[in-house]
Design a protein around this nucleic acid. Structure first.
Length: 409
DNA sequence: CTTCCACGGGAACACTGGGGTG
DNA sequence: CACCCCAGTGTTCCCGTGGAAG
């Protein structure tokens, strides 16, 4: 039977020596029981939230810090401890974690919260105030203390901070329950374009998470590695190297953990018994390539066209301006019969590519010759070309040449 | 000091996919 | 069922503005 043969394959793979004891602890989503170098933040947050255990609503908190500085981990960790304490004391304490990168609109956030408290809200269709009412009634139906953690809160506030306004002053509309908000953001300027009233109530307390330095990241990696790996599979240099790489990336611990995990996975796949520096370097490349591939692949067609123009120009010169990109872009669109967007829109698309780390775009002033963005490719051109070619609509570009009237410069 | 180009914020619009109402 | 309401998204249109070359 074929299944017999197949199960044999799996069996062999399963019996193959693994370097891992527990791979999960290396995932950044894993919340460990102890967070090295974050004692101060944990204590601070706990001291703010402790009033929940006395039946009061704690102050709202804003947490700032770059990616991979442990904001989410600390918030989740303290939240869980708090919930456990609440349970032990028989308090109706609810800690609700919402990632605003996924739940990224007012409507969806309120619908999510309402659903949490057992209300049925359709995915779309209702006026927002009605969803808000639904949530309020659901929450207020009995005595409760709710702590809402809004991760990546900047992604939500981008348009309309109405929800935040409503949520932050919600306590005055509640008879039985109390609500507090913990906002997490990596955008230090986040509060700038926020309604002043929201700003003051949301930021009653503020916590700053500084980036980790290389030695701190080393501690984190050591702690996790102990749980994750079998004895002696790591070369001594592996953890310092991972830490050094991550420290360059503004002390991103998540990055370091990914790097360590992927290094080990690569080693394992090649059947090596130990993880070495070489694996780390391979992993570093792999992460970068995977990131670019993933980003480019999921780009909408118009962005791909803009990127294709940039790639085309990169083959000819080092850097170029928005105007040049737009001229090439327009011709490409005509060439394959796609809609041509306005230059205004294209500048936005370029900025998005910049934010995604695929291109570099800096605004410069060329004096007499006006202001423009100077753009250059910042990821591997080969990788991007390869992925762009996967798109059947862009395949037709293979015969593309810019017409002579595209006098570049 | 003038001049010039594109930046980037904001308003307005079209369109989509959903809901409620009579 | 027809019809209107709503949020969300991607886009266009309009326009004030930055800042170094000339």
């Amino acid at each position: 039977m074929a299944t017999g043969a197949l199960s044999k394959i799996f069996e062999e793979l399963l019996n193959k020596d693994t370097l891992f004891k527990n791979r999960e602890v290396l995932r950044s989503s894993h919340t460990p029981d102890y967070l090295p170098h974050r004692e101060e933040q944990v204590n601070h947050l706990a001291s703010i939230l402790v009033s929940a255990l006395r039946g009061d609503s704690p102050s709202n908190v804003l947490i700032y810090g770059k990616t991979g500085t442990g904001k989410t981990a600390v918030a989740k960790f303290v939240g869980k401890e708090l919930e456990d304490m609440g349970e032990a004391k028989g308090l109706p304490l609810y800690v609700i974690y919402v990632n605003c990168e996924i739940v990224d609109t007012q409507y969806r956030l309120l619908a999510h919260l309402a659903t949490y408290f057992g209300r049925d809200v359709p995915m779309t269709g209702w006026p927002t105030d009605r969803v808000y009412e639904e949530f309020r009634e659901g929450l207020d139906s009995e005595f409760r203390i709710a702590i809402i953690i809004l991760d990546e809160i900047d992604k939500l506030a981008r348009r309309g901070d109405d929800v935040l306004y409503n949520l932050s002053r919600m306590n005055s509309n509640l008879k039985n329950s109390k609500v507090s908000i913990i906002g997490i953001t990596n955008d230090l300027t986040f509060t700038d374009h926020l309604d002043p009233r929201v700003r003051s109530s949301l930021g009653e307390e503020e916590l700053i998470f500084p980036p980790y330095n290389a030695t701190q990241i080393e501690d984190i990696l050591k702690q996790r590695a102990e749980e994750a790996f079998k004895e002696g599979v790591l070369d001594d240099t592996v953890i310092p190297l991972c830490s050094a790489y991550a420290a360059q990336e503004h002390g991103d611990a998540r990055r370091a953990l990914d790097l360590l995990r992927i290094s080990a996975e690569l080693a394992e796949r090649r059947g090596d018994k130990r993880v070495t520096e070489e694996h780390v370097r391979m992993a570093q490349d792999k992460i970068e390539v995977d990131r670019v591939v993933e980003v480019v692949r999921t780009l909408p067609t118009q962005s791909k066209l803009v990127l294709a123009s940039i790639v085309w120009l990169s083959g000819r010169m080092k850097s170029f301006t928005t105007g040049e990109i737009y001229r090439v872009y327009r011709q490409m669109c005509m060439y394959i019969g796609a809609d041509v967007l306005t230059q205004r829109r294209v500048t936005d698309l370029i900025s998005e590519l910049d934010m995604l780390g695929i291109v570099n775009a800096t605004v410069i002033s060329k004096g007499r010759h006006g202001r423009t963005k100077e753009v250059s490719l910042s990821a591997s051109i080969e990788t991007i070309k390869l992925v762009l070619n996967e798109d059947y609509r862009l395949k037709e570009l293979s015969g593309f040449r810019a017409s002579t009237q595209t006098s570049l410069i």
